[in-house]
């Protein structure tokens, strides 16, 4: 599956390498309100692109960060188990991640650990946040401190897609962090890839390197 990363035929993910294109993904269990949050943030502006085979919806948005205009693609997928096979391409090249749970359902909070683990397998360093949605249902939850974010050292937001509390704030901060990350990526994976590329180059200059570790077909074996 890892080899398929980025290979959704309908989508060209190479564009996310360019300076002005940012990709932000949204994770969380079914029905925690991921789509409603996107819709609340984008209001009428949104023209989602539906890719129902992958249970994927893309929302496009333009924002100004500093003095730069950036085009943001929000990737929203269903929490349903049967869609999880598309995840490698979902994570591919993402610059930030919004993780959502439903304050009315403990199981969605507990599952954050799984979502987070999977995220970090693919994107070890991208900015991430935890969002407690549906606080309108019971404002008392905002007196409780949910430790998952603190434990992982990532920001935490109490929000409501229904009445709009903190939705815009959360999205704006995540957009800024995504852009910052993009300008200054520190992702371990990216570094490993770069080192591999360097190694590759050295190798070509120095034929003896072939004997070390890399099994290349060499005529001397005969």
């Amino acid at each position: 599956m890892a080899g398929d990363a980025g290979s959704i035929p309908e989508l060209d993910q190479k564009k996310y390498d360019s300076g002005e294109q940012v990709k932000i993904i949204c994770l969380g269990d079914s029905a925690v309100g991921k789509s409603k949050l996107m819709e609340r943030f984008l209001m009428d502006e949104y023209r989602p692109q539906q890719l129902s085979t992958y249970a994927l919806t893309l929302y496009k948005h333009t924002a100004t960060v500093g003095n730069k205009t950036v085009a943001i693609d929000f990737w929203d997928t269903a929490g349903q188990e049967r869609f999880q096979s598309m995840h490698p391409s979902y994570y591919h090249k993402a610059h930030a991640c919004i993780m959502v749970f439903d304050v009315q359902r403990k199981i969605t909070y507990k599952n954050l650990a799984n979502w987070y683990k999977e995220l970090r397998e693919f994107r070890p360093e991208i900015p991430c946040c935890v969002v407690a949605n549906k606080i309108d249902a019971d404002l008392k939850v905002t007196q409780r401190s949910f430790n998952f974010g603190k434990k992982q050292g990532i920001p935490f937001y109490f929000v409501s897609a229904a009445d709009g509390t903190n939705v815009v704030k959360m999205f704006r901060e995540m957009i800024t962090r995504a852009v910052e990350y993009k300008q200054n990526p520190s992702d371990f994976m990216d570094e490993v890839l770069q080192e591999l590329e360097n190694f590759d180059l050295e190798e070509k200059e120095d034929p003896e390197a072939d004997e070390v570790g890399l099994k290349t077909e060499s005529p001397e074996l005969e």
């Binding site: 909070y109 507990k110 650990a113 905002t142 007196q143 409780r144 401190s145 430790n147 109490f158 709009g164």
Partner: peptide, 23 residues
């Protein structure tokens, strides 16, 4: 719409107890 809850959050959340799952 913004609301600051950082001043009102105090109680520990019971959802964080029973921490056999990496929480």
């Amino acid at each position: 719409l913004e609301m600051d809850f950082t001043k009102t959050t105090q109680e520990k959340c019971s959802w964080d107890e029973e921490s056999d799952d990496g929480f």
